[in-house]
């Protein structure tokens, strides 16, 4: 009932994915492996508890809807047995009730299905980090440098003029540089909107287009990339 996927480094973070939907489980497992995590998949709560008793697990990804032993029951049992690692719940219902019950049962965070993969990665990073490192004042990528306290953007020695909103968006992308940021994350973290809606989507596109014009148009190497259907990412490589 379980399978372990190998990873790039043995010291990497070990994630236990408890999900009975096999297609989703294998997709998550694959995606996490690509992200450099070590992954074990359990399809039932009972199987998960067995894995936990045998191996060291850093983060648990738990589906609420499981056959036989439900996700909440599994979570309670885990906590009862003294497993204290962070747990990220996957719920398919967007009802507040469900979230509250999950958090009450000892979950550290929750994510509503269908979720965007970059969002899942971001949540796992946040959970594992636990202690938030002190915010940097300057982030650089290639020849781009963003001064967060002075709100200044410089590339190749030239200062770029950005509007306030453009800067907010760029700052967010830079804080997550190297990883893809989904539209949901942008809506929530930059536009402070709990729901993502079409009007906002159009607004993002315009802002992204403007930032790209100022940031990348006159340079050979492009830094702001759109991963079609997934989101946006700041990186200096190809693609």
């Amino acid at each position: 009932m379980e399978s372990e996927s190998s990873s790039r480094s043995t010291e990497s973070i070990h994630i236990l994915v408890i999900e009975d939907e096999r297609k989703l489980a294998s997709a998550i497992s694959e995606g996490l492996c690509q992200g450099g995590y070590r992954v074990t998949v359990a399809f039932t709560g009972e199987g998960a508890l067995k894995v936990l008793s045998e191996k060291h697990v850093d983060v648990v990804l738990l589906d609420v809807m499981l056959p036989k032993m439900s996700g909440l029951e599994t979570l309670r049992e885990m906590r009862k047995r003294g497993f204290k690692m962070p747990v990220l719940m996957l719920t398919s219902k967007g009802l507040v009730d469900d979230r509250v019950r999950g958090l009450d049962a000892g979950a550290d965070d929750y994510l509503v299905k269908p979720f965007a993969f970059p969002e899942l990665l971001a949540r796992i990073r946040a959970l594992h980090r636990r202690v938030i490192p002190s915010a940097p004042t300057r982030i650089s990528l290639d020849d781009l440098s963003v001064d967060l306290s002075g709100r200044m953007v410089e590339r190749g020695g030239r200062i770029l003029e950005l509007t306030e909103r453009e800067f907010d968006l760029l700052e967010y992308l830079m804080l997550n540089k190297g990883t893809v940021v989904s539209r949901e994350m942008v809506a929530r973290d930059v536009w402070k909107s709990e729901v993502r809606y079409t009007s906002l989507d159009n607004v993002f596109d315009v802002h992204i287009a403007r930032i790209r014009r100022k940031l990348d148009d006159s340079f050979e190497r492009k830094l702001l990339h759109t991963v079609r259907g997934v989101g946006f990412v700041m990186r200096s490589g190809e693609e």
């Binding site: 269908p114 539209r183 991963v227 079609r228 259907g229 997934v230």
Partner: peptide
Amino acid sequence: DIIGSMLEEVS
């Protein structure tokens, strides 16, 4: 590109 296009529809 194809996957991206599908993802857009999913979104």
